Simulated assay, not measured.
Amino acid sequence: METRELAIVASSFVGFQLLFYGVSPLLSSIITKGYGVLPSSKHCEWNSRLVSTIHALIVGLLCLYILWFDDAVNADPVWGDPSLVKVNVAITSGYLIYDLVLLACNWSTMGDSFFVCHHLAALYAYSYVLTRGVLPYFANFRLISELSTPFVNQRWFFEALRYPRSHRLVVANGVAMAVVFFLVRIAVMPPYYASVVATFGTPAFERLGLGAQVAWIVSCVCLDILNTVWMYRIARGCYKVLTGAPSSKAKGPDSERNKQNHVNNHTD
């Protein structure tokens, strides 16, 4: 990994730590009165999700810029100039490391094995981008998924603030979350894998070597299995909200709010 990328990863890690411990509590208490009355156990995940939303907006917008305007990457998806993609991936890698540390420190309240698998698979794949500069188009394409993260986090914010599920804002966000999540994580699978298959057997693909090839394909498959699981959870929750169906696992008015198995609020 070059010095620049390593510096971006480290800066990203430190920056997200500062957002979590300093900016988020102050900003949340000013903007949302309900933040101050939440139990302390909720503050940690609230701050985590606000940081997640900020990360998603930064990386998601940069991802779209690269897809639309970076001709070198789009012309050669396997070996195109990875300079700007490396910046985006380095920011995300710093965020993923920060989030893994946060999960480890707060495992009893925030721990989720899906999260850990997701983060490790992503870091494994992105390490090839940062160290060898390979697969810039495909690495950046995976980050389209970040565009669904703000809606996922907003769902949790509404639940933490005890908005009723029938509230129009909750319903609107739930529908938007399901639609956007499907578009950026599920609907993109066919064209993505069509592009992947199109590289098989080409000189550019052979130059990658077995290690990069396995890391690329295996990590993508693992991440998309997780995305499919999360899509199922979202679709089921959206259906219940739209139809007013009660949760089959509910044991009290707060049971759903206290559950920790929310859809992943992070990145591919």
Score class of each variant (00 low, 15 high):
P77I: 06
K33S: 14
L161H: 06
H119T: 04
R142E: 15
A122M: 02
P246T: 08
G60Y: 05
P77R: 04
F182A: 12
V171G: 01
F114Q: 11
R165T: 07
C220P: 06
S219Y: 00
V241A: 01
V37L: 02
G209Y: 01
N227P: 08
Q260G: 03
G252L: 00
F13G: 02
V175S: 06
L169R: 13
R207N: 09
F200E: 09
S108Q: 09
A125D: 01
F138Q: 02
I66C: 14
E45Y: 07
K251L: 14
Y21E: 12
W216Q: 08
E159L: 06
D71L: 14
N261G: 08
T53S: 14
R132S: 10
P136Y: 02
M110Q: 03
T53A: 13
Q154E: 15
V175R: 03
G111V: 00
D99N: 00
R142S: 15
Y35K: 06
W107S: 00
S24F: 12
A187N: 10
F115N: 15
I144P: 00
S195E: 15
E159F: 02
G60I: 02
L226W: 14
S24T: 13
P191G: 09
A172S: 13
G252S: 06
M110I: 00
H55T: 05
E146S: 14
H43Y: 07
N153M: 02
D76W: 00
G244M: 15
L223S: 07
C105V: 05
T32Q: 04
Q260K: 11
V241M: 08
K86Y: 09
E146T: 14
E45C: 04
C117P: 02
D254G: 02
V152L: 15
F182W: 12
Y95G: 05
N265T: 08
S166C: 05
S48N: 13
T109F: 00
R236S: 09
G22C: 11
D76M: 03
L210M: 08
Q213H: 05
M1H: 05
V101T: 10
T32V: 09
G133Y: 03
F114I: 15
T149P: 02
L143N: 13
G80V: 01
A72L: 07
F16P: 01
L130I: 15
V196M: 14
C117K: 12
C220S: 15
Y232G: 13
L64Y: 14
S83C: 07
F114E: 12
L61F: 10
E146I: 13
W107T: 00
V129G: 11
L26P: 01
